[in-house]
Amino acid sequence: MTRKRRSFTPEFKLEAASLVLDQGYSVPEASRSLDIGETILRRWVKQLEEERGGTTPTNKALTPEQQKIQELEARINRLEREKVIL
């Protein structure tokens, strides 16, 4: 029997990681209450800590500020490619 891979929105990931970082839940408690794996929750918590520290993630950002930075970086890259073509 194959299990369907679940996907989560950036908002859900942010809220889940915030439970651990801001509201004092342990990773096991939060993962049980949200019905997600501890490993993925630990990854989200680590990513949120890095984003709050000012590091732009390589994957989809969780915080609105980092999402905006990623959008602007993508726009700059696209404009630079267009400039090279011209």
Results as ranks from 00 to 15, higher is better:
residue 36 I to W: 08
residue 71 E to R: 03
residue 80 E to Q: 09
residue 47 Q to Y: 03
residue 49 E to W: 12
residue 16 A to E: 10
residue 15 E to F: 07
residue 35 D to C: 06
residue 49 E to Q: 14
residue 13 K to I: 00
residue 78 R to Y: 13
residue 3 R to S: 15
residue 5 R to D: 00
residue 32 R to D: 13
residue 16 A to R: 12
residue 65 E to T: 04
residue 24 G to A: 08
residue 9 T to V: 02
residue 56 T to P: 10
residue 84 V to F: 15
residue 53 G to L: 02
residue 61 A to R: 11
residue 61 A to S: 09
residue 69 I to P: 03
residue 4 K to T: 08
residue 51 E to M: 02
residue 9 T to M: 03
residue 59 N to C: 04
residue 68 K to H: 09
residue 44 W to N: 02
residue 78 R to C: 04
residue 59 N to F: 01
residue 26 S to K: 12
residue 39 T to E: 15
residue 21 L to M: 11
residue 86 L to K: 07
residue 53 G to T: 12
residue 61 A to D: 07
residue 26 S to Y: 15
residue 29 E to P: 15
residue 27 V to T: 13
residue 61 A to P: 13
residue 68 K to A: 06
residue 78 R to Q: 10
residue 12 F to G: 12
residue 69 I to R: 12
residue 4 K to R: 13
residue 69 I to S: 03
residue 71 E to Q: 06
residue 30 A to Y: 14
residue 26 S to E: 15
residue 24 G to R: 08
residue 33 S to L: 07
residue 83 K to Y: 04
residue 24 G to Q: 09
residue 70 Q to R: 02
residue 78 R to D: 09
residue 26 S to G: 15
residue 9 T to N: 04
residue 86 L to C: 03
residue 33 S to W: 06
residue 80 E to S: 07
residue 1 M to E: 12
residue 42 R to G: 07
residue 23 Q to I: 07
residue 44 W to S: 00
residue 78 R to G: 03
residue 56 T to A: 03
residue 35 D to A: 11
residue 82 E to S: 10
residue 83 K to G: 00
residue 65 E to G: 11
residue 28 P to M: 07
residue 8 F to S: 05
residue 81 R to L: 13
residue 47 Q to F: 01
residue 27 V to P: 15
residue 27 V to Y: 14
residue 64 P to H: 01
residue 52 R to A: 00
residue 20 V to H: 09
residue 76 I to V: 15
residue 27 V to M: 13
residue 76 I to M: 09
residue 32 R to F: 12
residue 57 P to K: 04
residue 61 A to G: 12
residue 21 L to W: 11
residue 24 G to L: 08
residue 63 T to E: 04
residue 63 T to D: 10
residue 20 V to A: 06
residue 11 E to I: 05
residue 39 T to Y: 13
residue 51 E to S: 01
residue 13 K to H: 03
residue 46 K to C: 00
residue 18 S to Y: 01
residue 77 N to P: 00
residue 48 L to T: 12
residue 59 N to G: 12
residue 66 Q to P: 04
residue 70 Q to N: 03
residue 17 A to V: 06
residue 80 E to N: 06
residue 66 Q to F: 03
residue 57 P to Y: 10
residue 79 L to W: 01
residue 2 T to A: 15
residue 2 T to N: 15
residue 17 A to F: 05
residue 9 T to K: 09
residue 45 V to A: 04
residue 65 E to S: 03
residue 17 A to L: 06
residue 79 L to P: 00
residue 25 Y to Q: 15
residue 34 L to Q: 05
residue 60 K to R: 12
residue 6 R to K: 13
residue 77 N to E: 09
residue 20 V to S: 09
residue 40 I to W: 13
residue 24 G to P: 14
residue 46 K to L: 02
residue 18 S to M: 01
residue 55 T to L: 02
residue 46 K to H: 05
residue 39 T to I: 11
residue 47 Q to W: 05
residue 73 E to A: 07
residue 60 K to G: 10
residue 9 T to Q: 03
residue 67 Q to Y: 05
residue 26 S to I: 11
residue 76 I to C: 11
residue 59 N to L: 00
